[in-house]
């Protein structure tokens, strides 16, 4: 019994297709990240030694044919440890970002759609969270009880929720008054349908770009927490903890610290390039808006 007029109500506009020529940053970033992810995914198979195999006779050896990145103070192969340790660093980056999206996006949609008191309440809570410097909030969450890697992922994810809420909210506020949302209202759609099937598909480009930034922030913050001893716990290891353990060895065996550091540097640069490329591909106008 749907009236024919309603059938012709404006549908959610299709997003314009991205420019045909992909930006160079996207290709480079994609290539770097693909290489890093493949190497780390295959780590158990391609690592030349077990990551925790100690060999006291081969302690602190400089890079050589047998140990490309040398060995650490227990004679463990640094290359194998970098490959295996990368898994935790990547899980930190993507896991914390996923958590931040899972909490931040629905809250932001709700705040922007409902406005009024709901909006006020959500945003004030976010204000309080944002009033802590990121690493301090992470430390506060981790200060109690025994530190563990998953707690660190949780802490890092929480740290970045407010900025995700703010972004989603502002995008939602802009979309709510659009014709296709008004039309959805007129059709009598429920709030959940409007939020997730009408608004979200149109709000995602800036959210995707923000999320790509968050992945690098999360890797770096997670590494800092691990460096401080609040993240991954030995004998498992991520790049931050590896660098932390290598700090006292800087004078005798600098390669132990340099290898994980360079790996992290490469990964983060790759994701940053990917994010910049994504931004360019999704919406050229955002390049300017984002920098301000």
């Amino acid at each position: 019994m749907a009236a024919p007029a309603l059938d012709r109500a404006p549908a959610a506009p299709r997003r314009r297709r991205p420019a045909r020529r992909l930006p160079a940053a996207l290709l480079w970033g994609g290539a770097i990240i693909a290489a890093v992810v493949i190497l780390i995914a295959l780590a158990p198979a391609i690592a030349p030694y077990p990551y925790d195999e100690m060999n006291i006779l081969a302690r602190l050896q400089p890079p050589s044919a047998a140990h490309w990145f040398g060995t650490d103070e227990f004679g463990r192969d640094v290359l194998s440890r970098v490959l295996i340790g990368g898994r935790l660093s990547l899980i930190m980056g993507f896991g914390a970002t996923a958590l931040c999206l899972a909490l931040g996006v629905p809250l932001g949609l709700l705040a922007g759609y409902r406005r009024g008191r709901v909006d006020e309440a959500i945003m004030r809570v976010m204000d309080v969270i944002m009033s802590f410097p990121p690493i301090l909030l992470g430390l506060l969450v981790l200060a109690v009880g025994t530190p563990s890697f998953w707690k660190a992922v949780l802490a890092v994810g929480l740290v970045y929720v407010p900025s995700m809420v703010r972004l989603t909210r502002s995008v939602t506020l802009n979309l709510v008054s659009e014709e296709f949302i008004v039309a959805a209202h007129a059709r009598g759609e429920g709030a959940a349908y409007i939020l997730f099937s009408e608004i979200l598909p149109n709000a995602w480009p800036p959210i995707a770009v923000e999320a790509s930034l968050k992945v690098t922030f999360a890797i770096l913050l997670g590494a800092s927490l691990s460096f401080l001893g609040m993240g991954a716990q030995p004998p498992s290891s991520d790049w931050g903890l590896m660098i932390s353990g290598a700090r006292p060895l800087v004078n005798s065996a600098p390669w132990v610290a340099l290898a994980p550091g360079l790996a992290m540097c490469l990964t983060v640069i790759g994701i940053n390039l990917l994010g910049d490329g994504l931004r360019e591909a999704l919406d050229p106008r955002m390049v300017r808006a984002h920098r301000q």
Binding site: S224, V250, N251, A257, L258, G261, M264, C265, I269, N272
Partner: peptide, 22 residues
Amino acid sequence: TYVGISVPEFFWGIVLILVFAR
């Protein structure tokens, strides 16, 4: 700047120690 924002402070610290102290 691109490299600068891609590396955590503590790694720069170690690189600087390596160069200027060691």
